[in-house]
Nucleic acid binder design. Sequence first.
DNA 1: TCTTGATCCTGTAGTCACTACAGATTGTAG
DNA 2: CTACAATCTGTAGTGACTACAGGATCAAGA
Lengths: 147, 147
Amino acid sequence: MGVGHSTVQALRRGELAQRVGCNLETIRYYEGIGLIPPPPRSEGRHRLYGGEHVRRLRFILRSRELGFSIEEIRALLTIEDGGGGCADVHALTSQHLELVRRKIADLRRLERTLSAAAAACARDASPECPIIETLSGPPRGKRRLPQ
Amino acid sequence: MGVGHSTVQALRRGELAQRVGCNLETIRYYEGIGLIPPPPRSEGRHRLYGGEHVRRLRFILRSRELGFSIEEIRALLTIEDGGGGCADVHALTSQHLELVRRKIADLRRLERTLSAAAAACARDASPECPIIETLSGPPRGKRRLPQ
DNA sequence: TCTTGATCCTGTAGTCACTACAGATTGTAG
DNA sequence: CTACAATCTGTAGTGACTACAGGATCAAGA
């Protein structure tokens, strides 16, 4: 079996972080907000993780990579935990896809505006700059994209 | 002259916010971080804005709409205030364009992955869901896009 | 002139998804 | 037994705002 699926019995926090490739503190953060169940502890209260924790954390990290918010991931995990159906997962995903597509459209509009302005700019010391003109222009009002 | 260029002598904060279409508190925030100079006040310490404030605030808001960060805008304003050249503005803009293009590429990759998974999903109650498979998959490691 | 209600003032806390730090405790290798 | 690494807890910081509390001021009507 591959490294990613090897049996693990008692990883500590740093080892888990290294194995899944996330920051040390992220794990404690996910536990704090209830995405990861509190793991068993050693006698001295050090957290001890097993294979199921590795699996769950990987799921969360990959979902974040794909742009799902923490609350969306919480919903996905709830469906999974409850043995919920594929249909619910599909609904959440297509909702998320819609958002991703809107973001792409926003960014493309933005890219067109900026590249047009940059192309019109003479790059010299003239006082009239088409980029400044563009930035001084009226707001388009479609201010989605909270970065 | 159009409404947007009419002469204004003493707008209060709420009026300025309404005129440029931003939140009331945003103006105070921009003053606090030094993007907008502190305006003159009335006897009772109420802020009084003029035409130059309108112009500057519009510049900031439009730049934000086009995805510039506060620090990038600060740089742009410094260039403008100092009568700096078009070349510097162009440099900042093309740097920003680069970022925008990377974001578009990231989102497109993400969109492809998600829509492929969603298309493969049967949307029934089966335990094996291709979306869940995708979300459980290995991280791709290209985790830009801090949202 | 007085009153009323809208607007404004200040400072602070909340948002999201982490990340970083301080100071104390525990685990482990030599 | 001693070092030193790793972990523990709680808290504060990030960016770009937004919202609120408790008080002061403004403008219009009576």
